[in-house]
């Protein structure tokens, strides 16, 4: 399902202009990360996709629906949204009930609900915690419950707001596996993140926002090397991208695979890079 954001402006009550003409088009199945400084308008923008906010000017379309014309509960069939803080969205007595809440509200049959719950629990690696109370789990596992409860709604579009904040490396790996699985099922995935290394390793397309506008939008290998523009919105290139730049790599590298591949090629053909000679 295509997302189409057309020249969207948004002014909060009180006069803060959070979006100043944003246009983006996202195709079904894309994996897109949105980065940018605190206050750049990232969360304001994604709240337009599930109708929590409506444009002051401009238009947002999810497939054939204009979000200004569609009620929030109907948009929930197309757009799932995982908040940054899981405690803002958990309220049931068991993990299984929590995860079943969304699909139940979308009107699925009991069989469909149990199938979706089982799948979501598997994707979130929560099978052995189905009967636990979410609040007896550690914050990391509560995060996975929040993710599962949105994934169970089986929406074509899933939005993650800062999924890795405060998480340790094992939880981040779980989230990465989950994103990979969702992607293989054809879901469109949008993530807001400050974790630029996580962005570089898991997303193909990167949108850079600053002061309510899109500063850069394109494949990560194009966007993440543009140090000067990233700095305008308080973002630094990923660690390995910076290392590649220091070493004079001609191509922007984002992952350790890309880094090692470039390194091997340079070692095999030192003459191909003038800086390696002499």
């Amino acid at each position: 399902m295509r997302i189409s954001i057309e020249d969207v402006h948004f002014v909060y009550p009180g006069g803060v202009e959070a979006l100043r003409g944003v246009s983006l088009s996202i195709e079904p199945g894309e994996r897109v990360a949105i980065v940018g400084q605190n206050g750049a308008g990232k969360t304001t923008l994604v709240k337009h996709l599930n109708g929590l906010l409506r444009p002051t000017r401009g238009r947002v379309r999810i497939g054939d629906w204009d979000t200004a014309q569609v009620e929030v509960h109907r948009l929930a069939q197309r757009v799932g949204y995982v908040f940054q803080n899981p405690d803002g969205q958990l309220f049931c007595r068991t993990v299984a009930e929590e995860v079943a809440f969304g699909p139940r509200n979308l009107g699925y049959t009991p069989e469909e609900i149990s199938q979706r719950v089982a799948e979501a629990l598997a994707l979130a690696e929560l099978e052995d915690k189905a009967e636990a109370n979410p609040y007896d789990l550690s914050p990391s596992w509560r995060k996975m419950v929040a993710l599962a409860s949105v994934i169970a709604m089986d929406t074509p579009i899933v939005i993650f707001d800062e999924p890795t904040t405060g998480q340790d490396v094992r939880t981040i790996r779980r989230i990465e596996r989950m994103i990979e699985m969702l992607s293989q099922r054809g879901k469109t995935i949008l993530t807001i993140t400050h974790d630029i290394d996580f962005c570089a390793e898991n997303f193909e397309r990167v949108v850079v926002m600053g002061q309510g506008r899109v500063l850069l939008d394109g494949p990560k290998e194009m966007v993440l090397g543009m140090e000067a523009i990233l700095a305008q919105t308080y973002v630094e290139p990923p660690q390995l991208t910076r290392l590649g730049m220091r070493l004079g790599f001609e191509k922007t590298v984002c992952t350790s695979e890309q880094f090692l591949e470039t390194l091997r090629r340079r070692l095999d053909h030192p003459q191909s890079d003038p800086r390696a000679e002499g």
């Binding site: 490396v169 981040i172 290394d197 390995l240 290392l243 350790s256 090692l260």
Partner: peptide, 17 residues
């Protein structure tokens, strides 16, 4: 379950080859 920097991680892989 403790994360390491990408610099350490990539150098460890490089060291392996």
């Amino acid at each position: 379950g403790i994360g390491i920097s990408r610099y350490t991680a990539v150098a460890r892989r490089a060291a392996g080859e």
